[in-house]
Design a protein around this nucleic acid. Structure first.
Lengths: 154, 154
DNA sequence: CCACACAATGAAGGTGCATCACTATTATGG
DNA sequence: CCATAATAGTGATGCACCTTCATTGTGTGG
């Protein structure tokens, strides 16, 4: 704990934030009757409009088979419906129910509300600095394609 | 996408970072023969020394039953061993094997390496600002106990 | 028209998590 | 000292998410 570099401290803060944030989001979603994965699917659907399962699989970076299961669950809980694709009879279109659309809209509102509370009273220049810093980190991450290993055993 | 506030943009960056970071960490761990959860256990063990499963369960905030499974897997893959507790015959002590200790050390090195690459060339004042910003966000999160909902349906 | 690509799903399995019931052991309050 | 409570670990089950492989329909280029 003593010789911890400032960089490592920054990484620690980021990871800490990750944990707190995701726990909090999970709790909120649970209250809406959603899991993380199912909410993610809803979110994509909200931003793309009615989509085939194949499209959703690509968007969420999971297998098509997995989407079948998620959609099954969302159909069972009344968030979405499956409808035949108008032109391609192989595909099905996933669309919102009334309840699903309302929930997605709530998520959208929640996102802004969440951000508002998160950064309230934070002066603009601090906010800008934060965004810039995060962008820088993201760029670096993607450029390096880094990974944890460095000099492992054997 | 047009009327997105600066705050929402900042939140978006954070969430983006979460995704990229965790994906990258998972890939790195996989290369070491570890899953996220098993690595988490190793990490705790590394910082606490030989521990009972009960202790680990509390540290990881999961059920004792779950620890049994994780330790089973780590024993099977040669990272740790189970030994009888010297004074409490109910308990077992989980300790590193040679390979496990080396891997944990590699994780520690990896953490610093990771941070170094992540923030290289970032001037100190930017780094400080980032840490401060993240601390502020963390404080706010904990204070509010916020959650995503705001005005959902029914 | 047919070989091949593609969408969705069934089958089976791995991982991480939970709860409940149970055993073995230890601690404690008469 | 002993009955009772608490603790450590595990077996049994079950759920969610994810995978790959095999199968069934459906599109499409040559």
């Amino acid at each position: 704990m003593a010789d911890q570099t400032r960089q490592t401290q920054a990484l620690g803060r980021i990871l800490e934030l990750v944990v707190v944030l995701s726990e909090d989001m999970t709790r909120g979603l649970e209250r809406l009757g959603l899991t993380d994965s199912r909410a993610h699917l809803l979110w994509e659907l909200h931003h793309r409009g009615p989509s085939t399962q194949r499209t959703l699989a690509d968007a969420l970076h999971v297998s098509a088979r997995n989407i079948t299961g998620l959609v099954d669950a969302l159909v069972a809980t009344g968030f979405v419906t499956r409808e035949p694709h108008p032109t391609d009879r192989r595909a099905t279109l996933v669309s919102f129910t009334e309840h699903g659309a309302a929930t997605a809209a709530a998520l959208e509102r929640g996102q802004h509300e969440f951000a508002r509370i998160l950064f309230e009273e934070m002066p603009d220049h601090r906010l800008d600095g934060l965004v810039e810093g995060l962008n820088e980190v993201l760029d670096r991450l993607r450029k390096h394609g880094v990974s944890i290993e460095s000099g492992a055993d054997q």
